[in-house]
Nucleic acid binder design. Structure first.
Lengths: 216, 216
DNA sequence: ACCTGAACACCGTTCAAGT
DNA sequence: ACCTGAACACCGTTCAAGT
């Protein structure tokens, strides 16, 4: 007989702020950012909208936590002994995939980062991988920031096109010549890879450094 | 005596969509994006909010026009005979400045670009300057896009910090080590320049090409 | 500690109707 | 051609009060 356990009886299944973030990710995944309202989110938790303000001071802070969660789900490199260029390349691709994993993921992370809330982990990983190339910390951090802005901006744009396509909306490709824009979009990943490779080539040229291991 | 001119008498000082964009820029400049509501904008034009929907189908389209206007005010290079690297460098800095010229300018342009509306001119200019280095059009366009995303993302972040500072809000600097984050932020422009230089070095390494002029 | 209920001060957008 | 007036269906946030 479903009696209550030992001590006190847990009145209701109360929520932690972690639960709120998970519920927010669910809405993001299924519906996207425009539908991620405090009211919708509250409803999906079986709660009043005002209850969310016990867990987070405002929506912006909540979105920052969501951005952190998206970024924290980035794949990490299995082996750590590789060339630093491969490590940076891997980090960039992994972040790209993590952003694509949730509808409007890139936009959420972009805003959080610009606002100076959350999504810091992404930059830290890139900087750490770059540092393995023997660059000093200042260079590593700043170039990581540059690469990070590229990855997020590019992914946001790409994600927007993917979502537009899936709705059958026609969006002109990103081309200089409108005449050649009529052809099929070559493909997404190539643009992305070119950017990352350009960046790596730039770093390589800046400092010959040690080939991979050993502090110069 | 202030009589009416020849033909018909102009009843009221009616607005063009250009006037709407200019008014929007005014609000952006003085108050920022959160205050750029259809109602505020209408009021600044002495009109009802619903009147704006005669000029633009929706707010998103209006913001795209605003983004176009911001980008179109980018300084253009005085002399065209320079090295292509200098041209790209100039374009990047000029766009940076154009985005900083209006409160939340970078955010407005970032969104418009990601959404595939407006702000295309920025990419076109960069691509044209890169093409002067002898790269083929595909490479030029894609690398321009990469650089563009960096410039906008970086500027958005920078602008956010500038505005936060001017309000006395404390925002932690963008650093890996929270311990070293307590120092003063070194400075903004340097981060920006490093990114552009990295990018140029990457392009340079990819194709030795002609030094500046002449098609390879 | 966690949440309800009700309210406040807004939003973007539509649409019939006016001139 | 350009705009009004009124409405619709929402927003984020606050706050006293409940358990």
């Amino acid at each position: 007989m479903t009696v209550k356990s030992e001590r006190s009886e847990p009145r209701a299944p109360r929520r932690s702020s972690g639960d709120v973030v998970v519920a927010a990710l669910g809405i993001l995944d299924r519906q996207g950012l425009p539908d991620l309202t405090m009211r919708n989110l509250a409803e999906s938790l079986g709660v009043q909208a005002s209850a969310l303000y016990w867990h987070f001071p405002n929506k912006q802070t909540l979105l920052a936590a969501v951005a952190d969660e998206i970024v924290s789900r980035t794949r990490t490199r299995p082996v750590a002994a590789d060339d630093w260029r491969d490590a940076v390349h891997f980090d960039a691709m992994a972040l790209h995939d993590a952003l694509l994993a949730f509808k409007d993921g890139a936009e959420v992370v972009s805003s959080a980062l610009a606002l100076g809330l959350g999504a810091r982990e992404a930059g830290r990983r890139l900087a750490a991988s770059i540092e393995r190339g023997g660059f000093d910390r200042m260079i590593a951090e700043r170039s990581a920031e540059a690469l990070l802005h590229f990855v997020i901006g590019q992914t946001w744009h790409e994600q927007q096109r993917l979502q537009a396509d899936s709705l059958g909306v026609v969006v002109e490709p990103f081309a200089t010549d409108p005449a050649e824009a009529s052809g099929a979009t070559p493909e997404g990943p190539a643009v992305f890879e070119l950017g990352v490779d350009l960046f790596l080539a730039g770093l390589d040229a800046r400092e010959p450094a040690a080939p991979s291991r050993g502090a110069r």
